[in-house]
Design a protein around this nucleic acid. Structure first.
Lengths: 333, 333
DNA sequence: TTGTAAGCGTTATCAC
DNA sequence: GTGATAACGCTTACAA
């Protein structure tokens, strides 16, 4: 396997009859180089197919241009959407996303972060799992920026982007109440991630304050199939719920489908359903799911602008609000 | 912004009281180093939080460990699924995925490939668009492996992974025929990608051979909303089709939803629908879509094993088959 | 504006 | 088994 075939600045310099530095300067924005020289260099570079070696450049500048995205279940609609937005915005500031898939186990998040350090990533964005404090400290100490999205926990020096899950969940309860629902349930996976837990707690809290009892059911991963199981459990209860708040839209889709097709219930007449995320499927006419929208674009914007700014500000925490999108799965609205 | 804080091999060497080379060897699998020395080095490395600089290593070894994924519409279920599988399998062979989002324009594919060269990626995998021959030649000449997935066109030195779209489309026609359908339509986006075109052609070809006429409708991007529009156009025709083969599942979902909810048709009684990709949503009980499955895992496997092998074989082309998954959207089966 | 030379953190080669 | 030393391809003072 002959690999050593990339053309280097030296090759270009020779062909253009200038020094290496002239070549380097030509490809460094804002460096001073004569028009004539630049022209000759560019010509030679194009003829040879020269491209600046970003590895070597990163080595010198101590800035690789790489940003690490640490994420599991990439194929989930909300995650995929966020990844798309992040990669797009990173490219706008001339950074490039390295994708690290942590599907196998949560311990992998630590390994992923280590990998990010090895590649001298300028920053890491954690979308899944929670890294150990020792490793995040190392990141920060190494001068690597760290963004935690919906991770809740506190980490020195990192930017934490969170949603007002609790408040949203309270609004969900109120919405059900206004729709005339009296027998409410919360359908959760047993993933136990911070945002899922916060939604559950917010909902129950609000219910307690209004003296309403709510049934909680938890099962499996945060996916459609779990929604199916959850609906089967909830809808066969002696006292059938007339409203189910689902921890996210994927669960809600499973719940709705099961309620309609297996239990022949009408949504929203017999059962009101509320979700979270506002994935694309929620707007499909089979669902018309009323749900809370994650401000994906804004999240990406916060993350990218923070890690791209030259010097860090003091405020490392950022709370965004999930907006309620009214569609047809809850009466009223 | 203090960046230069990563600890280097020199630091570790000093602390462990050995030479830089000893440190290097300790972290090079298969290098000969005394147990005692290794122990001292590892200890020092851990205390200092040392991680081998992959940028520098890549520079020396002429192998960065980076693999470039060039893709648009990352948030589409099939794409997201493929990316997940690719990133997972790449990690298994100690490679890491760089994600390049080419949403904006197809020209970006060339730029993306240039970026891949700049980062000295060991390989690039193209999932979207079609790069210019000049640039793919440069990749190959630079010793960068190139994988084209469902791109159809020929490229010297690259691995081309394709599906038997044509054959599958022919089977689709036969399935409709057996279901007793006589008025068939093909619903396509106007993206015009090779696989979409092949499916259309295969279907029409088969129809022609059987003396059956098929209506073709094309509209918009390859997404749900286009399916809605396509269904509206097709189902308001004087002679309403009783079978629609959709270029992919996303279109099919739009078509089915519109047929059912807007036109009050029953699938499959009034209308048979067939899709392509077998995205997760197709198995949801609102759809139960009969469709052709992309062998995503196998595609990723082919790609990864090819780019990881030390020396290239001769065969640079690979045809995989899309299996027909029978569910409820076509009568019979 | 330009070239020379030093240095970035590795690994590979070579004596010892 | 170990330690100098020379690459790798780049950027950046510094001097011309």
């Amino acid at each position: 396997m002959s690999r050593k075939v990339f053309v280097s600045a030296k090759d270009v310099a020779e062909r253009a009859g200038v020094s290496r530095s002239a070549v380097s300067r030509t490809f460094t924005p804002g460096a001073s180089v004569a028009d004539e020289t630049r022209k000759r260099v560019v010509e030679a570079a194009e003829a040879l197919g020269y491209h600046v070696n970003h590895l070597a450049r990163g080595l010198m500048r101590n800035e690789s241009g790489l940003v690490c995205l640490i994420v599991s279940e990439i194929d989930t609609p909300y995650r995929a959407n966020l990844i798309r937005e992040l990669s797009r915005q990173l490219q706008n500031v001339s950074k490039i996303a390295m994708l690290i898939n942590t599907d196998r186990a949560d311990k992998n998040v630590d390994d992923a972060l280590r990998l990010a350090i090895s590649y001298r990533a300028d920053a890491s964005i954690v979308l899944s799992g929670m890294p150990d404090k020792s490793i995040t400290d190392l990141c920060v100490k190494s001068g690597q920026r760290l963004v935690l999205i919906n991770r809740d926990e506190q980490r020195e020096g990192a930017l934490m982007i969170n949603l007002n899950d609790r408040d949203a969940a309270r609004r969900a309860f109120i919405a059900f109440l206004r729709a005339g629902c009296r027998s409410m349930a919360f359908a959760n996976s047993d993933a136990g991630t911070p945002s899922l837990v916060a939604r559950e707690q917010g909902f129950c809290e609000a219910a307690r304050e209004h003296g309403v009892e709510v049934v909680i059911e938890r099962f499996g991963p945060t996916r459609y199939q779990s929604g199916v199981t959850l609906a089967q459990r909830l809808l066969t209860r002696e006292k059938r719920p007339d409203a189910i708040f689902c921890a996210n839209d994927l669960l809600a889709c499973g719940v709705m489908d099961t309620a309609r097709h297996q239990f022949k219930l009408s949504v929203p007449d017999d059962l009101c359903v509320l979700g979270f995320d506002d994935i694309e499927q929620s707007s499909w006419s089979s669902y018309h799911l009323t749900t809370f929208a994650q401000p994906v674009e804004k999240i990406a914007q916060k993350a990218v602008s923070w890690l791209a700014q030259p010097s860090l500000t003091d405020d490392h925490s950022c709370k965004l609000t999930a907006e309620l999108i009214w569609r047809g799965s809850v009466r009223g609205g």
